[in-house]
């Protein structure tokens, strides 16, 4: 519903309307196990050479005492390698608490943190999820920045992630 509205506005308002940006819908599946723990999730943009263009979101055990929640950040294995190990968490506007099963919308505005100014080119939006006593899954959505028109793409996860949908707002 909201998405339709955004697209309609984008199409009708030729004048400076909505700020360009990226919207990401991440579905965390409900997993029916007794020892379910909310997954750690990282969302980032990377270039074709695997370098990280922007860290967009990291959901982890941020409220645990004595920084205990950082102990498992390494289990977001790809993110940890690409950039996690270079960061000092928490990072304002990027890190936050883990989230419950359901679909979560994240909106990022071009020119503003954490997306920032993105050079024109090819990117991959990567979503990685890792769950205690559970598995790990990584999904990639390729995209071209800046978009010529409003575009959307989605990929379907298999076990730790549901649908990840990406909308580009020109």
């Amino acid at each position: 519903m909201h998405k339709t509205l955004v697209l309609a506005l984008g199409l009708t308002a030729a004048a400076p309307a909505l700020a360009a940006g990226i919207e990401v819908d991440i579905e965390l599946p409900r997993i029916d196990v007794a020892d379910f723990r909310r997954p750690y999730v990282a969302v980032w943009l990377e270039r074709p050479d695997n370098t990280v263009a922007a860290n967009l979101a990291v959901w982890y055990g941020i409220k645990m005492r004595d920084g205990e929640g950082t102990k498992w950040l390494k289990d977001l294995r790809q993110w940890w390698r690409r950039s996690g190990r270079e960061l000092a968490v928490p990072v304002d506007g990027v890190t936050s608490a883990t989230r419950a099963p359901g679909t979560h919308r994240l909106s990022f505005t071009a020119g503003e943190a954490p997306l920032g100014k993105l050079a024109a080119g090819e990117y991959r939006l990567v979503v990685e999820a890792s769950r205690e006593h559970g598995g790990r899954e990584v999904l990639n959505v390729p995209l071209t920045w800046p978009p010529a028109a409003a575009t959307s793409a989605k990929v379907q996860g298999k076990h730790e992630l549901g649908t990840v949908a990406v909308q580009l707002v020109p």
Partner: peptide, 11 residues
């Protein structure tokens, strides 16, 4: 043989 080779928290 170490229990871990990659750690994200000192310990």
């Amino acid at each position: 043989l170490p229990s871990s080779t990659v750690l994200s928290k000192a310990g």
